[in-house]
């Protein structure tokens, strides 16, 4: 049975990188006593897929991983066991069952939404609220991107699906697919530059809010766990 797990990542654990989080969850699943499916061979590994890597230093309220289990005692039981095996900084938010035919977490990713706030709590993105419409009105937002053959100019504007200010935070939804992923720090920096603010490195904290897939005839964005079902 395929299971999709949604979790948050915050506090000091924001300094643990993506590969280490994968290894961390393998141990969580063992400690939790989940009857997870293993691959065959001399060093069997857990069948596990993560939706999208989260950069070191970022927090998240919407991380996803898929696992496969041989047996289970309901979503509530699994959620409780996993939570008990996690330290401060990881909360298990939902546990859903996936259809056999559902695409895995990584392949499904289409977009992600983020919030950026200033570390210095006396500052707020509210100061730049009037700039959002003008920022989005441009046809081109060019950034330099490192590629295998040096640097290239890329237009990120088509990949920015929405952007606005909410409770003093810059909130935006951008392309997160493997082909067109846009880094949230790039969007935040571009916005602040456009708004005429000079910023030091690490002046803001970014929180990933949600990861989306496309679904339905209109191919609208829905959160990854809406693909799954309660059990």
């Amino acid at each position: 049975m395929k299971i999709r797990i949604k979790f948050s990542k915050y506090g000091p654990l924001r300094f643990i990188g993506h590969l280490d989080i994968m290894r961390f969850f393998q141990k969580v699943i063992r400690r939790a006593g989940i009857d997870v499916t293993y691959s065959a061979g001399f060093s069997p590994h857990q069948v596990m897929t993560f939706a999208a890597p989260l950069g070191v230093g970022l927090c998240s309220l919407g991380e996803y991983m898929d696992i496969e289990v041989n047996s289970q005692q309901g979503a509530e039981d699994m959620k409780r066991r996993l939570q008990n095996a996690c330290p401060y900084g990881i909360d298990i938010l939902s546990v859903k069952a996936l259809q056999k035919t559902a695409g895995n977490a990584m392949a499904s990713v289409a977009a992600a939404s983020y919030a950026a706030v200033f570390r210095d709590r006396s500052r707020s993105f509210d100061d730049y609220i009037g700039q959002c419409a003008a920022f989005l009105a441009r046809e081109e937002i060019l950034i330099r991107k490192e590629t295998k053959r040096g640097t290239a100019e890329v237009n990120i504007r088509p990949g920015i699906y929405s952007l606005g200010i909410e409770d003093g935070a810059l909130v935006f939804t951008v392309d997160a697919s493997s082909a067109g992923n846009i880094r949230p720090s790039v969007v935040t920096e571009q916005f602040l530059r456009f708004a005429g603010a000079s910023e030091q490195e690490n002046a803001f904290q970014i929180v990933r809010l949600e990861i989306y897939t496309r679904s339905g005839e209109e191919a609208g964005l829905i959160p990854l766990d809406e693909v799954g079902e309660a059990f």
Partner: peptide, 14 residues
């Protein structure tokens, strides 16, 4: 909007 804890209580800054 409720954001998670990212206050730095560590010996080293972000």
């Amino acid at each position: 909007m409720q954001l998670p804890d990212f206050e730095n209580r560590l010996a080293l800054s972000d």
